[in-house]
C-alpha cells in the first residue's frame, strides 16, 4: 500500500509536466490570470514540492533515511 503511494508520488511530477503536455497546451480557460498552459506549469511548481514532501515523510516513517 505504502509502496504504491510512493510509486505514484515519484511518477506524478514527470507525468504531469512531461507526458501530459500535449493535452494542456492550450490558452483557455484562463485561470488566475494565466492561460491554461501556464497555469498548469505554475500549479506543478507548487505541487511537486508536495510530492517530494510526501515521499520524504513516507521514507522517514519506514526508517529508510539515515
Amino acid at each position: 500500500m505504502k509502496k504504491g503511494i510512493l510509486t505514484i508520488l515519484v511518477l506524478l511530477p514527470f507525468v504531469a509536466q512531461l507526458a501530459l503536455l500535449p493535452f494542456v497546451n492550450k490558452i483557455g480557460p484562463i485561470i488566475f490570470g494565466l492561460p491554461f498552459f501556464h497555469f498548469w506549469l505554475f500549479l506543478w511548481i507548487v505541487l511537486t514540492p508536495l510530492c517530494t514532501y510526501g515521499i520524504y515523510q513516507l521514507q522517514k516513517s519506514k526508517g529508510g533515511l539515515e
Partner: peptide, 13 residues
C-alpha cells in the same frame, strides 16, 4: 521559453 519551468522543477525533484 517556458521549458525552463518543468526543467528546473524536475531537476530539483
Amino acid at each position: 521559453a517556458f521549458f525552463a519551468i518543468p526543467y528546473s522543477v524536475l531537476a530539483f525533484f
